[in-house]
Design a protein around this nucleic acid. Structure first.
Length: 803
RNA sequence: GCCCGGGUGGCGAAAUGGGUAGACGCACGAGACUUAAAAUCUCGAGGGAGGCAACUCCCGUAGAGGUUCGAAUCCUCUCCCGGGCACCA
């Protein structure tokens, strides 16, 4: 037997990466595919630190799936790109004193190197970067589509302002009242901003979730975020005839509403202030305005508020009840005003207690002290409605009030319109020109892109005005409509706008005259399978769905949902904690790949735990995968040396078919850890029985190919298949009959306790199994001559004798 | 507080239309090879009790109950960990 060469992954992997590039192995025919399969993964943010193992984990898992589909005969398009605009890059650029336009290409180059080294099946012809003018030209085009459709609007509103990053943030970017990026408490500022009317689509975004094949966890997060709630708008009238609308989900408690509370910034406050309360109210309003969102929104603190000095009539009781303002009522939810029912709402109860306001119980629930919020009680103190159960009583009360015009059913969402303005430098400029006479005018398509100028002083300041405003030559432009002097919009757009459509661009990157080609789009979209992390469940994924809906409505695409199938992968943690720079536990993969090879590293990441749950990165254990690959290497070389092609022993053949069955099912369902374990079991059997023959090895090498693509290519050549990639081959097929032949071991229980085992041919009927079982010594001892009352038999698994 | 996950050997984990708990791997122990080490190979192993031993029995999937011939899996309650939302009316 010839000497078996040493497995050196560095040599094998670089060789194959070179061959893939030369032979265009990973570049499907985008115009005439037989079976298009768009395998998408969430593109990375090219930071200066490079890809960390979390990214590698996600990309490997997605790549394995793509390679499986490829081997199953699909033309798999697996593109990659870079989400390179944004505050993170900009802040880093500021800290090192270089323009991000100069830094980003270096970062991208480093990412490319790492991604190539990992052995992903990427089609590099279609790489994109959101910072490329050829890309953001169309991001700006997208903005203009929404603008023209009336879905982009400008309003002065209280927005989230991060005093450290000196920019506004979308609601989705505020975590517990803090900036998601830097953790600084977010302030409220009243600024003119651009918004997208995503709330117009709330119902559809919610309803469509039912028909998407998505990970349950992601669906739950989106549902939660959209936050649909059904209720009623009730009208309380002041003596002067001013109507105050409140939103409530508990109209059954209206008889217990003993006061009203408006948000401090509610527009009716001004005219409802009584003279003697003027000073107190104004002081309170100022106080609230200065508060940051953390101290305003985070609960479990004493309530504050002030009486306006005026009253409104409770439409149910007819009584005049006092009107207050308090910061626990938020302007952005509902109508910005509530009816307070202290007996049946925790917050109102606390507030009433603090300010000595009346508490009137109108729902009786046994054994529940006030505030009683349960909906299972019966009404009391509610006039004609006394004695009715809450829900029914609520319906009747609404009917009764509606007849008098004081109640309207209403659906309320937690979702807000998407604020897309950012007072920063490193983003796509919003393509608007302001004109004295024409107002905001969209930049004509022929003038796109509005180039982001390369400037030296891009530091943001505290004025709420973007750095671009300081660049007069860029800032001053004639109005495209009337030609008079105008000025550019100086805000750039949120990076989530960049990423809300990148999947549409990938198949069409070579077209400079359109954002996405209609033929390509029809062929490749919607995305076949999307794999990514749940950290984007309510940001990127919600925005992309919204943008796609709009594009569909405007006739640009033929589908409403961009990602019919989505799988969320888990998180890789280190020592039980999320990896982050501040914790100093970020694992950089380069050294591991250098030491063990990409194939070993890929498989190790997948073997850590279930892909969709994530796992803890520990370097112990990686050697186990390497040993496995060494064994496969050894076996394949031995098999290649065999001239004869003897038939496989029956037990090996059976195990082979069982392994194909399990690896096929587990790879399809992303249960990569158990698929790997199944291949290991098979290899162990081959070694034990000395059956490392070609027939036994070839199917294994193909199944291994998605996991360890370089090694599989190499061994495929070793096994004599020169000239074409293993990824041109077909995934092995198993024979159900062969997978289920042979003997099985059946557990024998007596009274439900395991007392013995018998080995019988598969499919042995009950009577024969029982007979064999009763002959077993251990079983005999426990049956002990007692009559058998009942026998439970599970084919090929177990028999239970009840005596 | 509300909504999702999850809790199984020393460790990462398997097994949930109820049916032999701990596959696979790491670490560990013993042995083989070696001058030695590494690598590799073989064997062992949930815990406890008894026995020289093959072996036998008991206990065991966060905890407590329950349903069942039979529960890691189903039901009820409790505890703990992770994630999301949170003064959302």
């Amino acid at each position: 037997m010839p000497e078996i060469p040493i497995y050196d992954p560095q040599v094998v992997e670089t060789a194959w990466q070179g061959r893939w590039a030369e032979r265009h192995t990973n570049e499907p025919d985008l115009d005439r595919p037989r079976a298009p399969f768009y395998n998408l993964m969430m593109f990375p943010y090219p930071s200066a630190e490079g890809l960390h193992v979390g990214n590698m984990f996600a990309f490997t898992g997605a790549d394995i799936y793509g390679r499986l589909k490829r081997l199953q005969g699909h033309d798999v398009f697996e593109p990659i790109g870079f989400d390179a605009f944004g505050i993170h890059s900009e802040n880093y650029a500021l800290s090192v004193g270089t323009n991000p336009a100069r830094l980003i290409p270096q970062n991208i180059e480093n990412f490319r190197r790492q991604l190539r080294r990992l052995g992903g099946m990427f089609d590099w012809r279609h790489e994109l970067s959101t910072t490329d003018p050829a890309y953001y030209k169309w991001t700006q085009w997208l903005f203009l589509q929404l603008f023209a459709a009336g879905l982009a609007y400008r309003k002065r509103a209280a927005v989230n302002w991060c005093p450290k990053d000196k920019t506004v943030l979308a609601n989705e970017q505020v975590i517990n009242g803090r900036c998601e990026r830097c953790g600084t408490p977010v302030e409220q500022r009243a600024l003119e901003q651009w918004f997208f009317r995503i709330t117009d689509y709330a119902e559809r975004l919610l309803a469509n979730l039912d028909r998407l094949d998505w990970s349950e966890s992601t669906v739950a997060l989106q549902r939660n975020w959209i936050g649909r709630s059904e209720g009623v708008e009730l009208v309380f009238e002041t003596p002067a005839g001013r109507k105050i609308a409140v939103f409530t989900t508990r109209p059954d408690t209206v008889f217990g509403a003993t006061y009203l509370v408006l948000a401090p910034e509610h527009p009716l406050v001004e005219e409802l202030i009584a003279v003697e309360q003027r000073v107190a109210v104004k002081t309170y309003q100022r106080e609230v305005q200065g508060k940051d969102i953390v101290s305003r929104k985070v609960g479990d603190k004493t309530k504050s508020g002030v009486f306006l000095g005026s009253y409104a009539r409770n439409p149910a009781t007819g009584e005049a009840i006092p009107i207050w303002i308090a910061d626990y009522v938020l302007m952005e939810y509902g109508t910005g005003a509530i009816m307070a029912v202290p007996a049946h709402d925790k917050r109102d109860f606390e507030f009433a207690g603090q300010f000595g306001l009346p508490i009137r119980q109108v729902v009786k629930v046994e054994g529940e002290p006030l505030p009683s919020v349960s909906e299972v009680g019966v009404l009391a103190g509610s006039g004609a409605f006394d004695g009715l159960p809450c829900r029914e009583g609520g319906r009747k009360i609404v009917e009764w009030l509606a007849a008098r015009g004081a109640a309207t059913p209403r659906v309320q969402y937690r979702l807000h319109d998407w604020c897309i303005s950012r007072q920063r430098y490193w983003g796509a400029p919003i393509p608007i020109i302001y004109c004295e006479s024409c107002g905001p005018v969209g930049v004509p398509e022929r003038d796109l892109p509005v180039m982001l100028p390369v400037i030296e002083d891009f530091r943001p300041d505290d004025t709420g005005v973007s750095p671009l405003a300081r660049h007069k030559e860029w800032y001053h432009v004639p109005c495209p409509r009337c030609g008079r002097p105008g000025r550019r919009e100086t805000d750039v757009s949120d990076t989530f706008l960049d990423s809300s459509w990148y999947f549409l661009r990938y198949p069409s990157t070579e077209f400079t005259d359109r954002p996405f080609d209609s033929g390509r789009t029809k062929t490749w979209l919607p995305v076949t399978t999307y794999i990514g992390g749940n950290e984007h469940a309510v940001l990127h994924l919600l925005y992309s769905r919204f943008i796609t809906m709009v594009l569909r409505q405007l006739g640009h695409v033929h589908f409403e949902e961009p990602f019919p199938k989505l799988r969320a992968h888990g998180l890789i943690v280190k020592d039980g904690a999320k990896m982050s720079k501040s914790r100093g536990n970020v694992v950089i993969p380069d050294a591991y790949i250098r030491q063990w090879g990409a194939d070993t590293f890929r498989m190790y990441l997948m073997f850590l735990g279930p892909f969709q749950e994530g796992g803890d990165f520990r370097e112990t254990g990686i050697v186990g995968i390497r040993r496995f690959l060494d064994k496969v290497w050894q076996l394949a070389h031995e098999a290649a040396a065999h001239r004869l092609r003897p038939a496989l022993p029956p037990d090996v053949e059976r195990k082979l078919h069982q392994t194909i069955k399990k690896v096929t099912a587990d790879t399809e369902s992303l249960d990569y850890n158990t698929a790997i374990a199944a291949m290991m079991e098979y290899v162990n059997l081959l070694r034990e029985t000395g059956s490392g023959k070609r027939e036994a090895l070839e199917p294994l090498v193909v199944m291994l190919a998605p996991y360890a693509p370089h090694l599989a290519e190499e061994l495929w050549v070793v096994l004599g298949h020169t000239g074409r990639s293993i990824f041109e081959e077909r995934w092995p097929v198993y024979d159900e009959a062969l997978a289920t032949t042979g003997d099985v071991e059946i557990a024998v229980q007596v009274n439900g306790r395991l007392r013995g085992r018998v080995t019988v041919p598969r499919g042995t009927p009950e009577a024969a199994v029982v007979k064999r079982a009763l002959a077993d010594e251990g079983v005999k001892k426990f049956v002990d001559g007692k009559p058998i009352k009942k026998t439970i038999f599970v084919q090929d698994r177990l028999v239970n004798l009840v005596v």
